[in-house]
Amino acid sequence: MTELHKIRVEVNGALVERTVEPRRLLSDFLREDLGLTGTHVGCEQGICGACTILLNGRAARSCLIFAVQVDGAKVMTIEGLSNSGAVRHLQDLFSKHRALQCGYCTPGMIVVAYDLLQHLPSPTAQEIRDGMSAALCRCTGYVGIIEAVTEAARERVAAVDCATPVHMTSD
């Protein structure tokens, strides 16, 4: 169980090589070995969603995956999504709609929202609620979170409908 394995993972666009124990959780690997502490750990039971990352482009719970399982895969964490600007607008909308209080769930929420909007470009209100139920928030009652994701979805639809990118105005 403690014999070390060498893994090569693309994390936030950069190739990372490390030796890890096979039992090492991906969440611990990201936070402790790579110092990417934006991935939060809330339950390690796959329920709360605070540790959500993108694995080969889809949302996944990093607390339910061993680091050795992502050998050869592409991992994107909240840091990668933030630094590339991919979730900048979602972050602004979370701020605008007070979609966070303590902020502990927020990195996972943003990744869940990003994944939802990537794969459901024009979600219905119910699809947004159900999709965002992949992560737990204990502070906000989800009201601001749903408003933020709804506005992001609406803007995407508007942007797709127009031939040229629309100027985003805040209402």
Binding site: C43, I47, R138, G141, Y142, I146
Partner: peptide
């Protein structure tokens, strides 16, 4: 003893308030 047994409300559980 886990969040699988102890149910916390999700976004889907919230009514219009």
């Amino acid at each position: 003893g886990s969040l699988m047994d102890y149910l916390v409300p999700t976004a889907s559980d919230m009514p219009p308030i």
